[in-house]
Design a protein around this nucleic acid. Sequence first.
DNA 1: TTGATCTTTGCAATCGAGTTGCGTGACAAG
DNA 2: CTTGTCACGCAACTCGATTGCAAAGATCAA
Lengths: 136, 136
Amino acid sequence: MQTVDEILKIKNVKNTAVRTVVLRHLLSQEKAQSLKDIENALIYTDRSSIFRTLKTFEENKIIHSIEDGSGMIKYAVCAEGCNCDPKDLHYHFYCNNCNKTFCLFDVPFQNIELPENFKMQQANMVVKGLCNNCND
Amino acid sequence: MQTVDEILKIKNVKNTAVRTVVLRHLLSQEKAQSLKDIENALIYTDRSSIFRTLKTFEENKIIHSIEDGSGMIKYAVCAEGCNCDPKDLHYHFYCNNCNKTFCLFDVPFQNIELPENFKMQQANMVVKGLCNNCND
DNA sequence: TTGATCTTTGCAATCGAGTTGCGTGACAAG
DNA sequence: CTTGTCACGCAACTCGATTGCAAAGATCAA
């Protein structure tokens, strides 16, 4: 696992106090985090600062965002070497019971045969159901 | 194509003035519609009435909702015989240029191998890119 | 038909996630 | 030291989604 400093350096993003704590928090979580999640975890950091930090991270492909249908955008750290190209896509899983969102890096992402003359640039794939903790 | 009356009857939803115009509008569009789209099209119908109508339609599986990342939930009429089960799932396509959302009923939806003990109940699959009109 | 009851509708208000404007302070270049 | 750029925190705002409430309409039993 790369460190906060290494990631920021590789992605050419200047290191600041807020960026460090936000990225450290994201790395420490196994589930994708919403702005509110981060806000609640980092009570001394302002919401708008976290917001702008997330935008910066997303622009620089440090994190990617997921629309899981919860009404809040979730963010997760990109895998090493990810460029957020179609080839880097992966499925997400949203648990209807515990409301957590996982990146399914290990589930193969198959090619989708689009209709004539449609071009894929990105995708947001969310499978919903029960996660291993909630599925009895 | 089924008529508005037939669909409401099959799905056991009482026919009312608002329901008729909303469903008729949805049927007439080839793209998924947001609440605002419908509001703009049906200028004599109140937003909250449309909103509650959409909720009713969704509960009764007349329509399904799509989170395409535009920030607005889009709605489209379910295909005939759809029960909104995993087997009825299909991909959606969001055009980054014209901001329209299509149901890709003809694109086969493959089984996804979830990790051990994860259970799929629904899915929200959105491919983003350029549609046939916008892809030069 | 009448009255009781339940549902639908329209209006206005509220909620909440996301976003922006602005002033301050830190840091860097010259 | 001066100047410029950038990050930060605070407060305000935007806008789609949602709800409370009362009036209008539908339903049903007598």
